[in-house]
Design a protein around this nucleic acid. Structure first.
Lengths: 194, 194
DNA sequence: CTCTAAAATTGACCGCGGTCAGTTTATGGA
DNA sequence: TCCATAAACTGACCGCGGTCAATTTTAGAG
């Protein structure tokens, strides 16, 4: 975890990130080209790859930061007490995650890190997401037959499923909110083993 | 849906597919290069793209065919009666889907088709998968408070979640079988609303 | 201030997926 | 059999992500 980077390094990296955000601003994530970013930052192409392992690593960082901001919002919220409240709480982040097919693909690809040493921003947000929503199920009006962390994992699995189906022609007659509500009703309703 | 292709076309396409399978045989899906495939098939590069929209379309076809073969196995099986039996039934297909990180990424990317006209082999297998397992929940010993098709969707969501976590360093202490069993116990156990 | 080793930066170059104007081959009617 | 038209095929070429040996800049010891 030692950094000890030069001032110049930090400035260059900041310029690259700023340039990337500007490019995304007008052509979207999918339309981003590394050549455009380095041109905007006023550096050579090689410099980009000295700062980011590859183009996806930049995306990981930018998208991860946006997701983190949404998680901050979630934490600031009062704990939702019903399925409808949970869905409303999660929707803004889910809409961002599905703003572009490309963005959702990157998120899926990076949500699991291949090695502990490689845990990136998006992978971290998934761990944090589970932590942020877990308390909702400790004192809420939801099922109590399984542990809160397992409930959390299930909520995330259904959120991903609902988002995936947004890009699917076979299922898009139902919108994101309705689909997630359907899933979470079935997953969260308090029940007793019969 | 009119075909009316020439004999030559079918032969060329078959040679491309055969060459691709041979390449995958010794370098894996991820290592496949279009140049190698066309060299093996004895055609020019342009011919490849006359037969497949892009490299991913070939992957879609090859991987989709393998998944379909697994679904054939599933259909031939007697209906599983317990969570453990369901997990055992699904495991072979899930192991194939996670044989390479690249393969799993392709599957996720193609599992939803952007437009009805573009529904490819993998997207079709997802629809078929839901149909194949749905009967298991009509007469089984599982929850009856929600409809079988919703149970199906949940099973698939958890299967994907379990597979995703296989590539995640944060969670790989639990293996695929154990994780899916944990999820499906929580999802499928018969319950009554309290 | 000077010198040196490490860090940061450069840009020509490469690999590979994908394109398309031009060429060859098949088809079916005269 | 010959010709016209469409279908299939070709390969030089392009865009873009990514590499690396060479060069410039910085830090800090003397």
């Amino acid at each position: 975890m030692t950094k000890a980077k030069q001032q110049r390094t930090l400035e260059t990296r900041a310029r690259l990130v700023a340039a990337a955000q500007a490019v995304i601003e007008d052509v979207g994530y999918e339309g981003l080209r590394v050549d455009q970013v380095v041109k905007g930052a006023g550096v050579a192409k090689g410099t980009f790859f000295a700062h980011f392992r590859d183009k996806d690593a930049l995306m990981d960082q930018l998208i991860g930061a946006r997701i983190d901001a949404h998680l901050d919002q979630l934490e600031a919220l009062p704990e939702p007490q019903t399925v409808v409240e949970i869905v409303e709480a999660l929707l803004p982040m889910m809409r961002y995650m599905t703003c572009e097919r490309y963005v959702f693909d990157v998120i899926l690809r990076y949500s699991g890190a291949a090695a502990v040493a490689e845990i990136g921003p998006i992978a971290n947000t998934f761990g944090r997401h589970a932590q942020v929503i877990e308390p909702w199920f400790v004192h809420g009006n939801f099922r109590t037959d399984i542990k809160p962390d397992l409930i959390s994992e299930g909520v995330m699995a259904f959120a991903i499923q609902a988002m995936s189906l947004m890009f699917c022609a076979l299922h898009n007659e139902t919108d994101l909110r309705a689909r997630l509500t359907l899933y979470l009703d079935a997953w969260l309703q308090p029940r007793t083993v019969s």
